[in-house]
């Protein structure tokens, strides 16, 4: 319970991450989904863009690696905060007490995995 109290005391941090992640998802995700997930599989854009050599070459730049890390980490915290707030609104009694731990803990775990993957690409 002490840990959950501590997590709740970091509310300003979760709000900041929520805002930043929401903005990143709003401004950048549509283009990524459209290009990588729709136009290339549909054959409208060439597959070359996603070939191993090209994508590995792109990720060889530290700026691009940091860009992709930000693209993954901040939207995760955005989602964690929204899912927590929505489930609290839905009043699922027993779950409410551990929601902050589940949501922010989940986002933090995946973010650590993202940092490890990015470091492996360095």
């Amino acid at each position: 319970m002490c840990l959950i109290k501590f997590i709740k005391s970091l509310e300003p941090l979760w709000w900041s991450l929520f805002g930043l992640g929401g903005a990143i998802a709003a401004f950048l995700f549509p283009a990524h989904i459209l290009i990588q997930g729709v136009l290339i599989p549909a054959g409208i854009l060439p597959k070359d863009m996603l070939q191993y050599e090209n994508f590995a070459g792109l990720l060889s730049s530290p700026i691009v690696r940091i860009y992709f890390l930000a693209l993954i980490v901040f939207p995760l915290y955005h989602a964690a905060h929204r899912i927590r707030m929505t489930l609290e609104d839905l009043r699922i009694g027993w779950l409410n007490a551990i929601l902050p731990l589940l949501c922010y803990g989940g986002a933090t775990t995946i973010s650590i995995a993202a940092v490890v993957v990015i470091l492996r690409l360095s």
Partner: peptide, 10 residues
Amino acid sequence: FVALYAICLL
């Protein structure tokens, strides 16, 4: 779905 796409990228 925002989280899901972030996980897809990862």
